Deep mutational scan, measured.
Amino acid sequence: GREWTEQETLLLLEALEMYKDDWNKVSEHVGSRTQDECILHFLR
């Protein structure tokens, strides 16, 4: 997939603090990424 922007990464980190590993909520918060993309990015 395409590179994550700084904004997307910030949203991901913010969402992780709020929702922990509720990836459905996390991906909704990021908006432009799927659950799978969020998980894969997080694991890097």
Rank of each mutant, 00 (worst) to 15 (best):
G1A: 12
G1F: 08
G1K: 12
G1I: 13
G1C: 04
R2S: 07
R2I: 15
R2T: 13
R2Q: 05
R2P: 00
E3Q: 13
E3P: 12
E3D: 15
E3M: 09
E3R: 11
E3C: 04
E3F: 13
W4G: 07
W4K: 11
W4C: 03
W4V: 07
W4S: 09
T5G: 01
T5P: 02
T5K: 11
T5A: 04
E6Q: 14
E6N: 07
E6V: 06
E6H: 09
E6S: 03
E6C: 09
E6Y: 07
Q7M: 15
Q7T: 12
Q7G: 09
E8M: 03
E8H: 03
E8T: 02
T9S: 10
T9M: 11
T9G: 08
T9N: 10
T9P: 03
T9A: 09
L10K: 13
L10Q: 14
L11H: 09
L11R: 08
L11T: 11
L11V: 09
L11Y: 05
L11N: 05
L11K: 11
L12P: 01
L12F: 11
L12K: 03
L12M: 05
L12G: 11
L12H: 04
L12R: 01
L12C: 04
L12S: 02
L13T: 15
L13W: 05
L13F: 09
L13Y: 06
L13V: 08
L13Q: 07
E14G: 05
E14K: 10
E14R: 05
E14Q: 09
E14F: 00
A15P: 00
A15S: 10
A15R: 00
A15M: 01
A15Y: 01
A15I: 00
A15E: 01
L16D: 06
L16H: 15
L16A: 13
L16M: 14
L16N: 13
L16V: 14
E17S: 05
E17R: 10
E17M: 01
E17N: 09
E17Y: 04
E17I: 02
E17L: 02
E17D: 12
M18W: 07
M18P: 02
M18D: 09
M18A: 13
M18I: 06
M18E: 08
M18C: 07
M18L: 12
Y19A: 04
Y19L: 01
Y19W: 09
Y19K: 06
K20P: 12
K20S: 07
K20Q: 05
K20M: 08
K20H: 11
D21V: 04
D21S: 09
D21C: 08
D21Y: 05
D21F: 06
D21R: 14
D22L: 03
D22P: 00
D22M: 13
D22C: 08
D22V: 03
D22W: 04
D22T: 02
W23V: 01
W23M: 05
W23E: 02
W23F: 07
W23K: 03
W23S: 02
W23I: 06
W23C: 03
W23N: 02
W23L: 03
N24M: 12
N24F: 06
N24E: 11
N24G: 12
N24W: 07
K25D: 05
K25L: 12
K25W: 02
K25M: 14
K25V: 07
K25Q: 08
K25I: 03
V26F: 09
V26N: 03
V26G: 01
V26K: 02
V26A: 11
V26Q: 03
V26S: 03
V26H: 01
S27M: 06
S27C: 08
S27R: 11
S27K: 13
S27W: 02
E28W: 12
E28R: 10
E28K: 05
E28G: 08
H29L: 05
H29Y: 10
H29I: 03
H29P: 00
H29Q: 08
H29D: 00
V30G: 00
V30L: 08
V30S: 01
V30R: 00
V30N: 01
V30A: 00
V30T: 04
V30I: 06
G31K: 12
G31A: 10
G31V: 10
G31H: 03
G31E: 11
G31F: 04
G31P: 08
G31S: 10
S32G: 13
S32K: 11
S32R: 07
S32L: 06
S32D: 13
S32A: 10
R33W: 04
R33I: 00
R33E: 05
R33K: 11
R33A: 05
R33H: 06
R33P: 02
R33Q: 00
T34W: 04
T34H: 04
T34L: 06
T34D: 10
T34S: 08
T34N: 12
T34K: 13
Q35H: 11
Q35C: 12
Q35T: 11
Q35P: 08
D36E: 10
D36G: 11
D36C: 08
D36H: 09
D36A: 10
D36Y: 04
D36F: 05
E37S: 03
E37R: 02
E37G: 01
E37D: 11
E37K: 03
E37P: 00
C38H: 01
C38A: 02
C38D: 05
I39E: 15
I39C: 13
I39M: 14
I39K: 15
I39S: 15
L40Q: 14
L40M: 12
L40P: 05
L40T: 14
L40S: 14
L40E: 13
L40K: 13
L40N: 13
H41C: 09
H41I: 03
H41K: 14
H41V: 05
H41E: 07
H41A: 12
H41F: 07
F42W: 15
F42T: 10
F42H: 15
F42Y: 15
F42G: 15
F42R: 15
F42E: 15
L43H: 15
L43D: 15
L43N: 14
L43M: 13
L43A: 14
L43R: 15
